[in-house]
């Protein structure tokens, strides 16, 4: 007899981390497609480049840490970080911008904390915030939608050759709102603000990410708690102020379909590693992200706020966990704190 001694359970379900990561990557495809359709090849180039950079960085650090490189690369988490960051970076970004962001995300925000599962902050958002603070101009050069440059132009931009880039760029709906809020006439004159049902072009980007997110929900890769709480809180904050002063505050619909709302709600905030743990905790965590997004969009110095809001709540997640443990079977009330 050649028996294998394993303690129970002796069987496991079909769920695998690689599969989870692959499904997340698949779910970003509609969003990527719409971004490419609206803004040209830039986003796709960014994604490919970011993936290569991420794998290289991850492999290098794993090697330095003496970890099995192939085994850890295969979990796909580096690719997810790379793709999410690349989708958040403007399609006009030069190669080094992406490289710096991805390198920081993988090396500092992820591996230096101990690799997958150990990072307190969402690596993609950490990379994004680093870039936004360090290179604010490059990070806010979005193109106007429906005027996609050709592949050659996109490649030129990627290689960092200034192709009269400033002539190409245009304000995003959130930029316009930020600039003209309070001036009803000016707002009415901004084409970016008047798409089919929300911000021009970006409504489709958000719709595509929503579709991908719903697919993740259906595949049970994520649960409804975080997206619902985030979007719900964002809409709930927006509604009374919009009703009160629509010249100054945008409508809930506009908020939900502008900027990184859907992308963030389904792909960023749902990162389980840096989110709160319990279901209640995740509801609170996501709702607070939604509130922060609205506050920063309406009153802050940046037109969009997904990255800041997520990072701030990453920081708060342990505290939320502290207070939101579930009541275990046979206990009259939930516990608090971390014991010890």
């Amino acid at each position: 007899m050649n028996l294998i001694s394993v303690t129970s359970p002796h069987t496991t379900g079909p769920s695998r981390t690689q599969r989870v990561m692959a499904q997340v990557l698949l779910a970003t495809l509609p969003g990527l497609a719409v971004l490419c359709g609206l803004f040209g090849w830039g986003s796709l180039i960014n994604v490919v480049w970011a993936c290569a950079a991420a794998l290289a960085c991850e492999a290098a650090v794993l090697r330095l840490r003496g970890k099995p490189v192939g085994f850890h690369l295969a979990d796909g988490s580096a690719l997810v970080t790379a793709v999410l960051l690349a989708l958040a970076i403007p399609p006009t970004a030069p190669w080094w911008l992406t490289l710096v962001g991805v390198g920081f995300a993988i090396i500092f925000a992820k591996q230096l904390y101990g690799g997958l599962g150990m990072n307190p902050f969402n690596p993609a958002m950490a990379g994004y915030v680093l870039l936004l603070i360090s290179f604010p101009v490059d990070m806010t050069r979005w193109l106007p939608p429906f005027e996609a440059p050709d592949l050659a132009t996109s490649l030129q931009l990627f290689l960092g050759r200034d192709h009269g880039i400033d002539a190409l760029t245009g304000a995003t709906p959130l930029d316009s709102l930020r600039t003209w809020a309070g001036d009803a006439a000016a707002l009415a004159a901004q084409p970016a603000l008047h798409g089919t049902f929300a911000g021009l072009g970006w409504e489709w980007v958000n719709l595509a990410f929503l579709a991908g997110g719903l697919w993740l929900l259906w595949r049970r890769v994520i649960t409804w708690h975080i997206p619902a709480a985030l979007l719900g809180a964002l809409a709930l904050c927006a509604l009374p102020f919009w009703l009160h002063d629509s010249a100054r505050f945008a409508s809930p619909l506009f908020h939900l379909f502008s900027g990184a709302a859907m992308f963030g709600a389904f792909f960023i905030a749902t990162d389980p590693v840096s989110a709160a743990t319990s279901r209640t905790g995740r509801l609170i965590y996501a709702a607070l992200i939604g509130v922060l997004i609205w506050v920063i969009r309406s009153f802050g110095g940046y037109p969009d706020a997904m990255a800041f809001a997520v990072l701030l709540l990453n920081l708060a997640a342990p505290t939320i966990d502290y207070y939101t443990q579930p009541r275990s079977y046979g206990h009259s009330k939930p516990k608090r704190g971390i014991g010890g």
């Binding site: 997958l116 599962g117 389980p272 319990s278 279901r279």
Partner: peptide, 11 residues
């Protein structure tokens, strides 16, 4: 592999 804190276990 590494725990990604997905929470499937808690569910």
């Amino acid at each position: 592999q590494s725990c990604i804190r997905c929470g499937a276990c808690a569910d």
